[in-house]
Design a protein around this nucleic acid. Structure first.
Lengths: 107, 107
DNA sequence: TATATAGTTTATATATTTGTGAACTAATAA
DNA sequence: TTATTAGTTCACAAATATATAAACTATATA
């Protein structure tokens, strides 16, 4: 019941997965590196909003950026991020399945 | 740029990982099923707070509960949850490593 | 040098999450 | 039946996260 610090850091990194836009970005970047403008075109919304989400993801260590002329290219820091994300999607899908089943049985 | 709904659901499940107490619970339940009181003893804090976190996790489909007399037993719905969590921890660890390296180089 | 492009940063209003304690409920035990 | 145990639910205050728009910055181009 000591050193909760690791749980705080761990939760903080996981928080990066807890927003629809950020999930969409991770999904896209699973295919490789993309420029800011391409990501924005893909997700829609305001550039300032996207910029903030991306830099939060970089700060938490799940994305990296590099400059290429006047563009910025974003990528996942590791395939592990994509894998973790995919696992959670599978958990979601089976939960939805179970709910559907439960609904069918009560009718 | 359509059906963002899946991203919302996906993010919502991932949000379950985004809190220190919930990470601590997932870590514990990686070892198997535990009773509410044992979890509380392990994490500390108020029972009402733990109860709310646990039921949110059940609602999102990452934990399941069952009754055993007057106790309630909680478990992960799938090993996938533990694996996703472990992957994100690895991402955290290598980020911390990289930061340490960066600090060393600038000194 | 002046302009345009490609984002970033900042300020702020709103929405969501979290922690706390009191009240409540279901199952068992006396 | 009455307590007791083992949690859950509720209401509310405080803390965090999010979206938006305006201002700003760095690089490249004319």
């Amino acid at each position: 019941m000591q050193d909760k610090r690791i749980y705080e850091l761990h939760a903080d990194v996981c928080k990066a997965l807890g927003h629809p836009l950020r999930i969409e970005v991770i999904d896209l970047l699973s295919n490789g590196e993309y420029g800011f403008t391409d990501i924005l075109e893909h997700t829609g919304g305001l550039k300032s909003n996207l910029s903030q989400h991306l830099s939060a993801m970089v700060r938490k260590g799940i994305l990296r950026v590099r400059r290429d002329g006047k563009n910025r290219l974003y990528a996942l820091t590791s395939r592990k991020v994509a894998r973790a994300c995919a696992l959670m999607r599978e958990v979601l899908v089976s939960h939805i399945e179970k709910q559907r089943m439960a609904l069918m049985n009560e009718k």
